[in-house]
Simulated scan of single mutants.
Amino acid sequence: MSLSERLPRLWYGPRWRTLLLWPLAGAYAFAVAFRGLLYRTGWLASHRVAVPVVVVGNLTVGGTGKTPVAAWLARQLSLRGRRVGVVLRGYGGRAVPAPVVVGPDADPRQVGDEAVLHSLRRPHVVVVHPDRVAAARRAAEEGAEIVVCDDGLQHLRLARDYEIVVVDGARGFGNGLLLPAGPLRESARRLERVDAVCVTDRGAGRASPLHVQGPRLLTAAFRLGEAVNLRSGERRPLKSFRGRVTHAVAGIGNPDAFFDGLRAAGLEPVAHALPDHAALDPAALPFPAGATVLMTEKDAVKCRDAAGPDWWFVELDVAVEREAARELLAHVLERTGLTGAGVHLG
């Protein structure tokens, strides 16, 4: 087991297991606090772009569900008639010298899998670049009225009008320690300074109640939907795979969440966890040729050219309670100056 696989197991266990890493976590905490102070006092500058910016991020390393929440928000704003630009770093892609506009047919090896995933949902524009300020400016130049930044809570160079933090409802903040002794990128007290906290519910129960002061708190229910064949586009309910030998592939931040969701649907898959953003190697598949394979849509965008005839991705349905969604959207639109009549929740 590699270090990247071993550390998360330690982070979500008793604190004492990472005792030797506490000094490093203390140094990291000082660096994060000092950097934040430099931005708050103006020694380091945050840059505004020509349109409002909403950041959807997280406090922890690993999969919390921020990309599905960012995609949900972008869709809701699009349904509201707004031209939405989604910007992100482009993890898993190659470094690019200038911001790149991403289309649905883009190569995820170039721009990253999450960027292609966003583009498939058809916002006005998707732009990737490590410098989120440059990416947001390009989105505005392409006609975006509002920018949704997928990740970037800690990218303080980009000034923002609204911040949403996504928290995994099952795993929470683990042992509550900062990197590398725990999963936190910054102190959980940061929640008191954001505008909204979205807790993801995958149907497995919450590890512990989340108490926050200040921001609005809402829950996003994540449920696995239908399976879609990568080659033909055929759709099937997950229950049609019950009793069959299936292999499940997940190259996401929290692959167990996908596997647990399949089991909750009555399947008994052979699980193959990959590192986040990793792609299947066609020359060394971890399952037999001709196998029935279920994967996340994030994995599927990297397999479109090499998919077997029985490879399927499983849709992820995101649902926010109607009144909570209405209040969040109204608050976002008010804070960004885009308030208009009505809020459509499609």
Score class of each variant (00 low, 15 high):
E5M: 09
R6Y: 10
P8L: 05
R15D: 02
R17G: 13
L19M: 11
L20R: 13
W22R: 15
A27M: 14
F30V: 15
F34N: 08
L37T: 11
V53Q: 08
L59K: 01
L59F: 07
T64I: 09
P68W: 09
P68M: 10
P68I: 01
A74Q: 01
R75L: 14
Q76V: 10
R82G: 06
L88S: 12
R89I: 08
G92E: 03
G93E: 10
V96F: 10
V116I: 12
H124Y: 11
V125L: 02
V127H: 04
R138K: 15
A140C: 11
V147G: 03
C149I: 04
H155W: 00
L156A: 06
A159Y: 00
R160D: 04
R160Y: 00
V166M: 08
D168V: 10
G176K: 02
L178A: 07
P180T: 03
P183N: 02
A188T: 13
R193K: 14
V194H: 00
V199P: 02
R202A: 12
R202K: 12
G203A: 01
P209E: 11
L210Y: 02
H211A: 14
G214D: 06
L217S: 07
L217D: 05
A220I: 04
R223M: 00
V228M: 03
L230H: 08
S240T: 15
F241S: 07
I252A: 05
R263G: 11
A273C: 03
L274A: 07
P275D: 05
P275L: 04
H277T: 01
A289D: 15
M295P: 06
D299T: 02
V301A: 08
K302C: 09
D305S: 15
W311P: 06
R322W: 07
E327G: 08
L328R: 00
A330C: 11
V332Y: 07
E334P: 03
G340N: 11
G342N: 05
L345K: 08
G346H: 14
G346L: 14
